[in-house]
Design a protein around this nucleic acid. Sequence first.
DNA 1: TGTCCTCGAGTTCC
DNA 2: CTCGAGGACA
Length: 676
Amino acid sequence: MTVGNRPIALRGAAEQRAAELRAELRHHDHRYYVLDTPEVSDAHYDALMRELAALEEEFPELRTPDSPTQRVAGMPATTFAPVTHRRPMLSLANVFDDGELSEFDERVRKLTGEAQVTYVCEPKMDGLAVELVYEKGRFVQGSTRGNGVVGEDVTANLRTIRSVPLTLEGAGLPQLLEVRGEVFLRTEDFKRLNARQEEAGDQPYVNPRNAAAGALRQKDPAVTAARPLSISFYEVGEVDGRAFATHWEKLAFLRELGLPVNPRNRRVEGLQGVHDAYAALLEDRHGLPYEVDGLVVKVDSEDLRLRMGAVSKAPRWAVAYKFPAEEAETQVEDIRVYVGRTGALTPVASLRPTKVGGVVVSRATLHNQDELKRKGVRIGDWVFIRRAGDVIPEVVAVIPSRRTGEEREFVFPTTCPECGAPTAREEEGAVIRCTNEVDCPAQMHQQLLHFASRNAMDVEGLGEELAGQLLRARLVRTPADLYRLSREQLVALERMGEKSADNLLQAIERSKHVTLRRFLYALGIRQVGEATARTLAGSFRDVRALADADVERLTQVKDVGPLVARSIHHYFQVPTNRALVEALLAAGVAPTPPEEVSGGALAGKTVVLTGELSAMSREEAKAEIERRGGKVSGSVSRKTDLVVAGEAAGSKLKKAQELGVKVLDEQGLLALLQGG
DNA sequence: TGTCCTCGAGTTCC
DNA sequence: CTCGAGGACA
């Protein structure tokens, strides 16, 4: 027996799945709209909705009037007065890739009979849609979208938004004007708000949109006022005595009235124009001061819009082209502890591999014990993860409602997982360390890698894998042993040919000629990074002199305070460290003190490099600047004399412009280096 | 004493 | 890149 041409069993399964999906979607709607505490990401919600829509497409008899697919979204809360929109506030259909966008464009052209359509592209700000009503130019009522037909009266809260004009100016104001826009939190304001939440001991918000939703739904407008919401307008609803031929005209009208309109809106021609706008926005996405989750594409001509109309919940003439999700949820399969160069124990979550922000993420750091405790992550937990731009993936929050009771609390080890030595927490410090200063294999491994790294001794070819092999084969215990390696010993290692062995030996040999600053940095003394190593090299000019210096003498060095001084002094008090230095010197490592530079072209200047340089690497540029007496620093401040901005320079360039610091491009730098 | 500026350290993926 | 904290300086 079949229904239509499908076996009944299949239909039965579909029916059951549809019921499950509906129940789940309703649950999430409640969490999201009523409780303001969503427990799944938008991407997850979208996926459920799409699955349900697909099922209903295939089995139309399953499409019930109360299905979540049949209404816009959400439900009115009980705490605010209901407002019925004069015209329903529709939501937008989503597309997720080029193919789906092309289908949209094709549909538009077919329905309108046009060969090419003009579109308006607007950044889709991640916030909440609202409608504001102006009567004779006075702001009289504001409401949320709600379910699209009935929303909530949030007039008092909207009044607290500084960029919402309470009265409109200008000649020929309409008697009645409805405007629609998005309420959102700027990224900066979001961070500040969350910092305050945490200080007050409250749960931080997962993202700016939820924070904005929370702020808008405050019963006390004073609380809303303390949360600096922003607004951007993009549509006109009901309006008296004013007709618009295009959407672009409408946006201009809004702007003339003094209503904020996004300056990134673009009017483009055809599909290609939309593609370009999308690519450009995606590129700038993280430079914008607010979160954007896609591009809204609207047919510009009002006439064409009328001819196209709307389907049940969304207009046919517009679509939201979504960016790849930067948030996802996944399960914590395990929590492991890694031991770093300084012995710091770092808990890392092993995640079920999940695609987020375009890449598959399988690990995320939990930083330290405090962080772990604050987030309350347990093994087996479902968590929100987020990866914005090039930023390292992070666990944002646990999703408590997905707990089954099977989750295990993670117990921070009291002994080092690598060497078994007891672990200890430093006074006032957040990190827990392995107390074995001498022969913890993990620390030895990391120290060896650090010693050989590019900015230290620069032993090319000595990476993660090889360092491990050398240690395991007991060919190397300290960095000094590198200088005793023979060709025979190396060739005996797995995956090590004669050519590779020779290359490595050469690299090791080359590293004997090293500057004192690199040498000091390579030792891995705690609190001594590249910058401190440089000042120490200039001040002492000899390792043994540094090793013999007492705390008082060390403190006299610029940028060295009591803590750094004690750390250096302590390092040379440990006999094995002292022995290491002597062994290195005996092996032929000959650190050279820096040349005295005086009166170079950049003497005494602080320079910051940002962006991508093409003619030289960052390291080369740094060396050239230093040779002329300049100092290269990592962050821009008022004390910075010059910022060199290469290709695709980001936040540092912006900061330089804000502070009025002199900026040069790469050409400018080259000219300066040559001239000097 | 408080504020600003830097530096060190840790980290993920390709 | 970000966080936290050391160090300089007013």
